[in-house]
Nucleic acid binder design. Structure first.
Lengths: 111, 111
DNA sequence: CTGTATCCTAGCGGATACTG
DNA sequence: CAGTATCCGCTAGGATACAG
């Protein structure tokens, strides 16, 4: 039995819900932000200071992307913006962590 | 207890084995190719015909990428090239499928 | 059958400076 | 504190044509 309809058409791809999550996961900082927020909500500047090498511009865009996918929430708190995982984001986290652990177990042989 | 060292430095990121897999998974066709090869080895043209909307150029690059990550093998067979999942690729597949299933369960609310 | 060569576009990622 | 405005380089993705 087959997981996929073969041949795979463009329409199949467009209709596939999986692609957008995969793209998001492939972004440079998204997963890191998700893992960090997995340890608790944070403000914008707190995130900015926590992740070295990430500019505010990119942080903003990354947060917006995660928010538009419903993975994190963005709520104004007293004197700061607070970012936190949504239930959706919470439920995705273990899968991402599993991917990370897989990668660590399988030493890369590239290059 | 924390999964991460906080703050996260650039060096932490560079040393993290997870990133390259995440990037690969985020590529447009990689996961699809992995899933297809999960059903059995295939030749180049077979793949080309199976996946509609994927040019030979991009197919070549995708295959090379997966190969350089050790996820698929590329062996000359009688009158064709044969691509197949490696053990490494086999072991990654369930995690990818899990991600796909997660995405299907959680209807996107974007846009 | 299995690619390569060329050329092009869009978008990610980033540096730097400015804003309410 | 939480962003925006500009500008810029790199590369993923693709169209099209050619090659051994």
């Amino acid at each position: 039995m087959s997981l996929l309809p073969l041949p795979v058409t463009s329409a199949d791809r467009e209709s596939c819900e999986a692609t957008y999550v995969l793209r998001r996961v492939g972004e440079k900082w998204s997963v890191l932000i998700l893992v960090i927020l997995g340890e608790g909500p944070m403000g914008f500047n707190e995130l900015d200071r926590t992740v070295e090498g990430l500019s505010r511009r990119i942080l903003t865009r990354t947060l917006r992307g995660l928010e538009s996918d419903g993975l994190i929430s963005r709520t104004p708190a007293a004197d700061r913006m607070e970012y936190a995982l949504t239930d959706s984001g919470q439920s995705l986290l273990p899968l991402i962590v599993a991917l990370g652990e897989w990668a660590i177990e399988h030493a890369r042989h590239r290059r």
